Amino acid sequence: MHPDLFHLRREICRVGQSLFQRGYIHSSAGNISARVPTAAGGGLLITPSDACLGFLEPETLAWLNADGERLAGPPPSKSHLLHQRLYDLEPDAGCVLHTHSSHLVALSLLRAWNETDLLPPLTPYYVMKVGHVPCIPYLSPGDPHAAHWLADTLTRHRAKGLRLRAVMQERLGPTVWGPSPAAAMATLEELEETARLWLLTQGQPTSLIPEQIDDLRQRFGASW
C-alpha cells in the first residue's frame, strides 16, 4: 500500500476516535472523508455507511474514484455525493468532516443569528479560524440536493470575496473542511465551542465591532 494512503487511513480513524471520545459525535452519526493524492491512486477515502466513527479500522474505509465508483471497501456513507462535490469545488480541501454536534444542532433548532449566518462574530478565533457559516435548509440524510445547495452557497460567498470553511444543515449538523483531517477537526472544535458559548449566554453578547474585525482581516487574513 502506498504510504500516503496508509497514513490517510490511519488519520481518518484517529480523528474519528478523538471526536467520538470527546462527544462531538455519537452512535453511527457523521462521516469523514479525505482526498487521496494522485500518486497514491486518487479519488477519496470515506467512512462506511452507518459506521461508528469511534471504532473505525483503517482497512474498512471505502475508497472511491473521482466518479464516485467504489474501488475498495464497504459501501460508502450515504453523504458521499456531498463530499465529492465539495472536493470538486474546493481544490485545497484535503478532508471533509460532518457531525451531528449537539450544541450546533441545538442552535439550528432554536434559531440562527440571522437569515444567512449561524453565529455572530463573537470571538477573534471564531472569526479567524472559522469565519462565516451559512445555513442550508433541512434535507433528508444523503439527499443529493444537498450538494446543489452547497455549490450555490459557495458560489454566492465567493462572489463577495469570502472563503468558507463550514456550512450548517438545519437539524442535521455542520459540514467542515480543511487541508487535512487535523485541520478540519480544529475548525469543527472552534465552531462547536462558539455555539456552546452562544447558548450558554442565551444569545446576549454583543459581536465584535467592525474595526475589530477589520483588524483581524488585516493582521491574520480572516475571511469575514
Results as ranks from 00 to 15, higher is better:
Ala72His: 11
Arg14Met: 00
Leu45Met: 06
Gly16Ile: 02
Pro124Asp: 10
Thr60Met: 05
Ala151Gly: 13
Gln21Arg: 14
Val133Trp: 03
Leu191Ser: 02
Gln204Trp: 00
Leu208Asn: 11
Trp177Asp: 05
Pro121Phe: 04
Leu164Ala: 10
Gly23Leu: 03
Ile32Thr: 06
Ala62Met: 07
Pro134Glu: 02
Gln202Ala: 13
Ala146Arg: 09
Arg85Tyr: 04
Pro121Val: 00
Val105Cys: 03
Leu8Met: 09
Glu59Gln: 15
Ala51Arg: 01
Phe55Met: 06
Leu64His: 07
Gly173Glu: 01
Pro121Tyr: 08
Asp152Glu: 15
Gln202Ile: 07
Leu89Pro: 04
Pro37Arg: 04
His103Met: 06
Phe20Ala: 14
Val15Glu: 01
Trp149Thr: 01
Ser18Ala: 15
Arg111Asp: 12
Leu45Tyr: 03
Thr60Tyr: 01
Met1Gly: 15
Gly41Glu: 06
Pro75Glu: 11
Trp224Phe: 14
Gly142Phe: 02
Ala159Ile: 02
Ile209His: 11
Gln212Met: 10
Ser223Gln: 14
Ala183Pro: 07
Leu64Ala: 10
Thr155Ile: 03
Ser101Ala: 15
Cys52Glu: 14
Ala159Asn: 10
Asp117Leu: 13
Thr201Ser: 14
Cys13Met: 04
Met128Glu: 12
Pro144Arg: 11
His98Tyr: 05
Trp177Ser: 05
Leu64Met: 10
His7Val: 09
Asp152Tyr: 02
Met185Gly: 00
Leu81Pro: 01
Gln21Glu: 15
Pro37Trp: 07
Pro144Ile: 06
Leu191Val: 10
Glu192Phe: 05
Glu69Val: 11
Leu216Cys: 12
Ser101Thr: 15
Arg9Pro: 00
Leu8Ser: 01
Pro121Met: 09
Leu139Thr: 11
Arg10Gln: 15
Leu199Gly: 00
Thr123Asn: 04
Asp67Pro: 01
His98Glu: 09
Leu200Lys: 05
Ser49Thr: 15
Leu139Ser: 06
Gln21Asp: 13
Ala29Gly: 11
Leu164Phe: 09
Ala34Lys: 05
Ser27Asp: 14
Leu19Arg: 02
Ser77Gln: 06
Leu188Asp: 00
Pro48Ser: 08
Leu110Met: 13
Ala151Ile: 05
Gly41Val: 03
Ser140Ala: 13
Val167Thr: 13
Phe20Leu: 02
Leu118Met: 15
Arg14Trp: 05
Pro120Ala: 08
Ser27Lys: 12
Pro179Ser: 15
Ala147Leu: 09
Ser180Met: 00
Leu139Gln: 11
His132Asp: 02
Ser223Asn: 11
Arg22Ser: 13
Arg22Gln: 13
His26Ser: 15
Lys129Cys: 06
